[in-house]
Each structure stands twice: as C-alpha cells, then as structure tokens.
Computed example of a mutant assay.
Amino acid sequence: MQRVCFQLQVKPERVDEYVERHRAVWPEMLEALHATGWHNYSLFLRRDGLLVGYFETPSLEAALAGMAATDVNARWQAEMAEFFEDLGDARPDTGFVLLDEVFHLEDQLATAGHRER
C-alpha cells in the first residue's frame, strides 16, 4: 500500500467555509473515492490555510485516474477550486504538491527486527 501525503494552500479568508463544506461531503463523492482506491484518507488544515492531505492506495496513478474518470469528481473539483491559492490552471486534485515520506515508524521497526509485544 502506497502512503501519499500532499499539500495545498486554502485562501485564509475561506478556511471556515472550506471546513464547513467538508463536514458533509457528497455521498457519491465518498463512494467514488472509496471505489477508486483512496483509503484512510484525511485532511488536516491550519488556520492560515495550509492543507495537508494523507491517504493510502495500492496505486497513486490508478487512484487519480479513477477519480478523473468520474463525473462527481469533476463537479466537486470545480466547486472546490475557488478555495485554493496558486493552482494556476490546475484543479485541486492535480495541483497539489506531493510530499516525500522521510520516516515511517513501522518500516524502521521492521528493519530493526522489532517484535510486537
């Protein structure tokens, strides 16, 4: 399972509305994410608008392609685009910055031969 972490910048004056929109994401969007391989998906938001997302997937490329093929994703991205800074012509789901994973506890424990107690 691939662990994916990404960053976007929400316009600071839109943070409260962005949070409100995510209190009840459209059921068909939730189903599409699940069906296309987005697992353990979370978003974290600082008050200044720094948004960090995390999810696990068998394939990032397949997860992105799967969502790109859905009508609900096109509608959701169109509505969400106005909340973000520095996207240029990109949609939020293609304009994010991927972050490199530099540490994972379980991987290092396994390498060190740690056993569960």
Rank of each mutant, 00 (worst) to 15 (best):
E17L: 09
R46H: 05
E61F: 11
E101Y: 08
L87T: 01
E31M: 07
R47M: 02
G37A: 07
V15R: 01
E106K: 15
R117Q: 05
Q77F: 13
V97T: 13
D48Y: 02
L109D: 11
A35L: 09
E116I: 12
T111I: 07
E85I: 03
Q2T: 13
V25E: 13
A68M: 01
F103C: 06
T111Y: 08
G113V: 05
E20Q: 11
H39Y: 04
E82I: 05
G49R: 02
V19I: 14
R75N: 08
D107L: 10
W26L: 03
P58Y: 10
R3C: 11
V102D: 15
G95D: 07
L109V: 09
A63P: 00
A90C: 11
E56P: 06
Y54K: 03
L45P: 02
A24D: 11
G37Y: 03
P58I: 10
T70L: 03
A65L: 06
M80A: 14
S59R: 04
C5R: 02
G88A: 15
V10Y: 11
F44W: 15
L8G: 14
V25F: 08
D93P: 04
H39D: 03
C5I: 03
V4S: 00
Q108N: 12
L51T: 04
T111G: 10
M80F: 11
V72R: 03
A90Y: 05
D86K: 01
A62L: 13
V25C: 15
P92T: 13
W38I: 07
L105E: 09
